[in-house]
């Protein structure tokens, strides 16, 4: 069986703003030859402080930007080699959850409309029972579809964002700091929900976080990043029990483990 997501020495550089007229602008290496393999139904946690390149890695897995070198294969297909319309169709199979539950839903659209948005890409008339089903799967009521985002709390909005992510029955969900903006008690609820959905739907997850404590509870594998470089990559239990790199140890201490 092929891995669901396979990243092979993926690198991404950004050009810094030019600060001297005659000198070439400096390059910032956001991600430096990162590699990982994610199997179906498993969770890979990517941990690092802000600026470590973990979000850039997520954006490349989501095909929002292309790596400068290396490749990312989704179910055997190099997603960055796909044409625009093939990629759009492929997007049904990998969805994303964002950090800010207040920013990830269009304030002018009813949430039922927002949840059905990925469905409308491939079918002109999105069946309303799928929206209702997705809402119930995340612990909300089908009748909530007719409400606007401002009528919900942060945790509820994150559930709505999850409903939108699972409505196309994807194989992969990329969660970029998906619980960082939530209260600790709500964090636990959302993490539990994600784990339940993972069991129910066989989802693979790429879980991006700066908080090792959050990641530790749900991940099978861990990838620790700093300044774009991969410090450690392996089974979560092994890294958590015997961190090889001092940076990982400091993260563990910070997480209170």
């Amino acid at each position: 069986m092929t891995a669901l997501v396979e990243a092979k020495s993926v690198s991404r550089h950004y050009r810094m703003p030019r600060n001297h007229l005659l000198r070439a602008p400096e390059m910032l290496t956001a991600v430096d030859s990162a590699s990982f393999t994610l199997n179906r139904g498993e969770t890979l946690g990517v941990v690092g402080e802000s600026g470590s390149g973990k979000s850039t890695l997520a954006r490349m897995v989501m095909a929002f930007e292309a790596p400068d070198s290396g490749e990312i294969r989704f179910d055997g297909t190099d997603i960055h080699a796909l044409g625009a319309s093939d990629l759009r169709r492929m997007r049904q199979r990998f969805q994303m959850i964002f950090q800010d539950p207040f920013g990830s839903l269009d304030p002018r659209r009813k949430i039922g409309w927002s949840i059905a948005e990925p469905l409308r890409v491939t079918q002109s008339e999105a069946p309303s029972h799928k929206t209702a089903e997705a809402l119930e799967q995340v612990g909300l009521r089908a009748a909530d579809a007719d409400k606007y985002p401002h009528e919900f709390s942060g945790g509820q909005r994150q559930r709505i964002a999850i409903a939108r992510a699972i409505v196309t029955r994807p194989d992969l969900i990329v969660a970029d700091e998906a619980v960082s903006a939530l209260d600790v008690s709500v964090q636990a609820q959302i993490l539990n929900l994600l784990m339940d959905l993972q069991d129910e739907l066989g989802l693979a997850m790429l879980f991006i976080s700066h908080d090792l404590a959050v990641v530790a509870s749900i991940c099978d594998q861990l990838l620790v990043m700093q300044h774009g470089k991969t410090l450690e990559y392996g089974a979560a239990t092994q890294i958590l029990n015997a961190p090889a790199h001092p940076y990982t140890k400091s993260l563990l201490t910070a997480a209170g483990a």
Binding site: M62, F64, R91, F94, Q95, F98, S104, D106, P107, R164
Partner: peptide
């Protein structure tokens, strides 16, 4: 730059569709 626009891109909407569905109303 809003996340709901990124979400629409993740859903596979074209830039024209995003302009119509999200940008213009907002």
């Amino acid at each position: 730059t809003r996340e709901y626009v990124t979400a629409a891109q993740a859903a596979g909407l074209t830039r024209a569709a995003i302009s119509r569905d999200h940008i213009l109303p907002n």
